[in-house]
Design a protein around this nucleic acid. Structure first.
Lengths: 170, 170
DNA sequence: CTGCCTGCAAAGGATTTGCACTCAT
DNA sequence: ATGAGTGCAAATCCTTTGCAGGCAG
């Protein structure tokens, strides 16, 4: 539906960066823009894939810089990463708290539960086709509370993907 | 409790290997023995760590062979691997169906739920200390059935570790 | 201006591969 | 005896690092 235009999420991320005294450079702008577009298309990109797309946007940006940028932006809290089945790590823009609230409030949790989840969410990956599906964090509430009660373990539901086999690959 | 001696699990694994027409070599024996011991001590070893211990047992076994062995034994179904938080992959001996049944039957599920789980089980890893905790697969039943119903996704509860923070690191 | 961020190139570590040989069956 | 498995060494892959220069603030 929406064309890929500089979204509010992108602007917001840049603002938060600046607010922390971090510098906004072409490389960082490009990385954030790539991830913003990817998120809008529900894509999950690895560092390498991000590098390729950044090269389109800003050909002078070096690969090593992409890696360093992903690290520093993650430290700065505007990006998060998810570990997929063993190999890859994929990156996401992190929504501001305001955006997070807005998304939660404006949504019928049931109907939109598996729609476009542009905020905090969990991931499952198919071992057959590699596809990554987004899942609302509530789906893991059961395990989370059980682990907390029985082991004192605080589960981070969005940090690692669960593996399995999707409907198409069964 | 139990000393680390050639266990029934090990013998069984070798038998299943032979039954499939796979050859039993010193390298394979060593890899299986290392993993059997590790499992008994509730350790989770990476390919590299396995390599080190194999070198103690069979100094002539080459690193590359350990990698190839882990792959082929996994294909043969006597080993399984678990992807830990992003980086490492750790290996386990796979219990035979008979052993699996026996463990399930002979055990009070509640009391032993978090004890030594030498069969099929899930994993959670602490992002603080890196420790890996074993968790009975039932803990993930809730998510599993929800994913199946709503997405047709068959969750493999033992194939990837969930991340979070353990009691000591909170 | 100051030093954070970058480009470049080279190092790094883990895993994989080609090849010829050996040993389990 | 025969080919699955192996040892060896080199190649490959992705990621990180040291250093000097450049641009954001």
């Amino acid at each position: 539906m929406d064309p890929v235009l500089p979204s509010r999420r992108l602007t917001s991320a840049l603002d938060r960066l600046r607010a922390q005294g971090e510098r906004v450079t072409p490389a960082r702008r490009a990385v954030l823009q790539v991830l913003d577009s990817a998120d809008q298309a529900d894509e999950h990109l690895t560092a390498e894939q991000i590098g390729v797309r950044v090269a389109d946007l800003e050909p002078t940006v070096h690969r090593a810089t992409v890696y360093r940028t992903l690290t520093s932006l993650t430290d700065a809290g505007v990006l998060s990463h998810v570990h997929l089945g063993g190999t890859a790590t994929v990156y996401h823009l992190v929504a501001s708290e305001a955006e997070e609230r807005e998304a939660a409030g404006g949504t019928d949790a049931g109907a939109a539960a598996y729609g476009h989840l542009h905020t905090h969410h969990a991931h499952v990956q198919c071992v057959g086709c590699g596809r990554v599906l987004d899942v609302p964090p509530e789906a893991l509430e059961g395990v989370a509370s059980r682990l907390q009660e029985e082991l004192g373990f605080i589960l981070d539901t969005s940090h690692a993907a669960l593996l399995g086999r999707c409907a198409d690959c069964s």
